[in-house]
């Protein structure tokens, strides 16, 4: 029997567990009152921490499968390894920290929370990020990302640091296509941007946010804060909050 505890770490061994079994184990641990959960030997199991509303610290050792933290609301998930597609899908609040790379559509439709990616992200990172009242999602990418970064963004912030970027150019094209809210802040150039966005200088508030985020990034992964902050950042903002204002005939 599990002893009820909120201090000691609860350890789940995911080895040979199917997705549903693993998630049931995690939910059971939460029901038992555990606040810190380590999951060992994770190998592609999906939906870890799906819809969890309790404030739990989860550490994942291995590679979690798709939809890590989908619908999550408040917990903190640290991944010691890479993560796959749809990490933080439609997340409401909480934090996901990935010590490695992530797949596609990271943070899709998230309404709040933070996602820190140590290295690189795949396609459509931050697609349709939103924000609402006190909630504003932030995605920090240490390295680079692929095409359609921040597509349809309606709110929130993506910060891309471009660490170890070769030639100062991110491979991403169509950045911010369909964007109508929020901002993308990046160091380095991209191959192309959507016609709904324009390049702007960072204002004071942006600078503060970048500084704060880089410090947090460094806390998670370790990096040379001053060196990064010394590099040149630019910001992509939507031209209009009403991109489709005059498309129709009534």
């Amino acid at each position: 029997m599990n002893t009820k505890s909120s201090i000691s770490k609860f350890v789940v061994d995911a080895k040979n567990l199917a997705t549903r079994e693993l998630n049931e184990k995690i939910r059971e641990a939460i029901r038992d009152g555990h606040k810190q959960i380590d999951i060992q030997n994770v190998s592609g199991q999906r939906y870890i921490a799906a819809g969890i509303q309790e404030l739990i610290d989860i550490e994942i050792f291995g590679v979690p499968g798709n939809d890590l933290g989908v619908f999550m609301d408040g917990s903190k998930v640290v991944v010691h390894g890479n993560a796959q597609d749809a990490t933080g899908n439609t997340m409401n609040s909480g934090e996901i920290i990935i010590h490695g790379d992530v797949g596609d559509i990271t943070g899709m439709s998230a309404r709040g929370g933070k996602i820190f990616i140590q290295k690189n992200a795949g396609y459509r990172t931050g697609v349709h990020l939103k924000e609402y009242q006190g909630l504003r999602p932030i995605i920090v990418i240490g390295g680079t990302a692929q095409d359609f970064l921040g597509e349809y963004m309606a709110g929130g912030v993506i910060i891309m640091l471009g660490l170890n970027l070769k030639g100062g150019i991110h491979n991403a094209d169509y950045v911010g296509t369909g964007m109508h809210g929020g901002s993308i802040i990046l160091s380095g150039d991209v191959r192309g941007i959507g016609r709904e966005v324009e390049v702007q200088q960072l204002d004071q508030e942006d600078n503060r946010l970048v500084e704060h985020s880089v410090q947090e990034y460094s806390k998670h992964f370790g990096c040379k804060v001053d060196e990064i902050l010394g590099s040149k950042f630019k910001k992509l903002k939507p031209v209009s909050t009403r991109p489709y204002g005059n498309l129709y005939s009534y």
């Binding site: 899709m108 697609v127 709110g155």
Partner: peptide, 27 residues
């Protein structure tokens, strides 16, 4: 809807986490 008042609320044509039956199964 949990979005700011006054901005367009855009529903993209596809769900970007669904490009196949396998993806649908995932959602």
């Amino acid at each position: 809807r949990r979005i700011p008042a006054g901005t367009d609320a855009i529903s993209p044509a596809p769900q970007h986490d669904i490009y196949s039956i396998e993806d649908l199964s995932q959602l």
